[in-house]
Amino acid sequence: MPVNSRALLFLGVAVITGLGLGGWLRKIEASRSVASEMNPAKSALFKTQQLRMGKPNQMADIQIEVVGGFPNTNDQEATLRATVTLDRPFDGDVNFEWVLPPGVEHVAGELKDSVPGVQPGQSFTREIAVLGFSSEGMPRNVTLEVSGTARGSIVGSSSVISSHPTRSDLSLGFRPNKQMVDENRMQQKAMGSDDDEGEVRPTLPKGLKL
């Protein structure tokens, strides 16, 4: 792991655990001079959204993950967790609906519902448990549809998770490591995220226009 990745990771943990980050930063400042200007400080917390590669202007960003990883067999329960973050305002409630393909059986959790009062920048999370969504057999796609109205139009976003997600980007070979099959991590790898734990990815060209 690169040194600065470790620093970022540590800082992230510090925030989450409520450490006195401000004080820590000031401590660094006290010893600062021109010569030490490259010490990590405020800018160590920079993590620009611009490096994301999501659909531009989307209503909502949806990330689906399989909690605890993909089951090996279809008779094992899979827990799907969706995190929905609004990017643009809906007129009213935000509706969500899990769309299950044939062969995937609903066990628990709300398949569809409305969430009131969600504003841009805010997130909500929903989980369902299903059977028939595993690494076994044929691939199956589960979709989360988020919809509503905005200025009178029917609008929405969706996200698809496959029980056999693409294990490589198509520009590369197949990489048969099931532990890495996590859509969230795949997403974070786009465009040079610092979060990769040891995996070396090719560098995408700068300035991809979305």
């Binding site: 590669m53 999501g54 659909k55 689906i64 969706s158 996200s159 698809v160 998770i161 496959s162 997600p165 693409t166 490589s168 980007d169 198509l170 520009s171 590369l172 859509e183 795949m186 997403q187 790898k189 786009a190 465009m191 990815r201 995408l204 060209p205 300035g207 991809l208 226009k209 979305l210």
Partner: peptide, 15 residues
């Protein structure tokens, strides 16, 4: 899918 995120919807231009 060309950069490892096949479930993300996107169109783009690469110069």
């Amino acid at each position: 899918a060309y950069y490892g995120s096949p479930s993300s919807a996107i169109s783009f231009f690469a110069s």
